[in-house]
């Protein structure tokens, strides 16, 4: 494992911890999109089907369990926790999941490497992950005054995707036959979605003002 991959995984882990911290300690999910969280839960559930069939490493299995467990518990908190659910911006979080899920499923059925259940599900998870942040970005745009933790959560998620691209560049030059077009294209698309957010995030940081996305 190279440094970019490790840094990417750790950033991803940090993003989840920041979100859990906000929900668990402050008992608030204001500004957090349940739609995005549900899509992530689906992404991990469909991607990690191999957790029971292939053993890669202890690190790999543990991280998979963490991402599965945290994504489902975040969804549970927002939907069912008696205090947290009251802070959910239901009226603002109106992005429809199926607008993302159906095209991703169709694309996975037609564009994949092997036509097996596990492989199509894995490909679906890559496509879905690429666009799963959209409901969250739409919600941020509608929310005036984004709080620090929510801003940091999205920033860390974006940083994780960026680091994975460096990881692929590194692996491309150091490992023979490391060519994975589907993963790469989905990953680059996903990272580009954060470009606008990053711009405003750094602007607000530089000028020391509260993060606000233009409507």
């Amino acid at each position: 494992m190279n440094i970019f991959r490790l840094a990417g995984d750790m950033t991803h882990l940090a993003s989840v911890l920041v979100l859990l911290l906000k929900i668990h300690t402050i008992k608030s999910c204001a500004g957090v999109s349940l739609k995005t969280q549900e899509l992530y839960a689906l992404v991990f559930a469909t991607r990690y089907l191999d957790i029971v069939t292939d053993f890669i490493s202890v690190y790999n299995t543990v991280m998979k369990l963490i991402f599965l467990g945290s994504s489902f518990s975040i969804v549970w908190y927002i939907r069912h926790h008696r205090v947290v659910r009251r802070s959910y911006d239901k009226d603002q979080d109106t992005f429809r999941h199926y607008l993302l899920m159906i095209p991703c499923m169709l694309l996975a059925l037609f564009v994949h490497e092997k036509f097996t259940f596990k492989e199509v599900m894995w490909t679906f998870s890559l496509y879905l992950e690429a666009v799963a942040i959209l409901p969250q970005l739409v919600l941020l745009q509608r929310t005036r005054n984004i709080d620090n933790l929510t801003g940091q959560y999205v920033f860390l998620l974006g940083a994780y995707r960026g680091l994975y691209i460096f990881n692929w560049i590194y692996r491309y030059f150091t490992e023979p036959h490391f060519v994975h077009w589907i993963t790469w294209i989905a990953g680059v698309v996903q990272t580009l979605l954060y470009a606008d957010f990053f711009y405003y995030y750094f602007e607000s940081w530089k000028n020391n003002v509260r993060l606000q996305l233009p409507a």
Binding site: I56, N60, H180
Partner: peptide, 10 residues
């Protein structure tokens, strides 16, 4: 290791 490149990622 024909198919594992990338599959070891999260």
């Amino acid at each position: 290791m024909e198919h594992t490149s990338g599959k070891d990622e999260l």
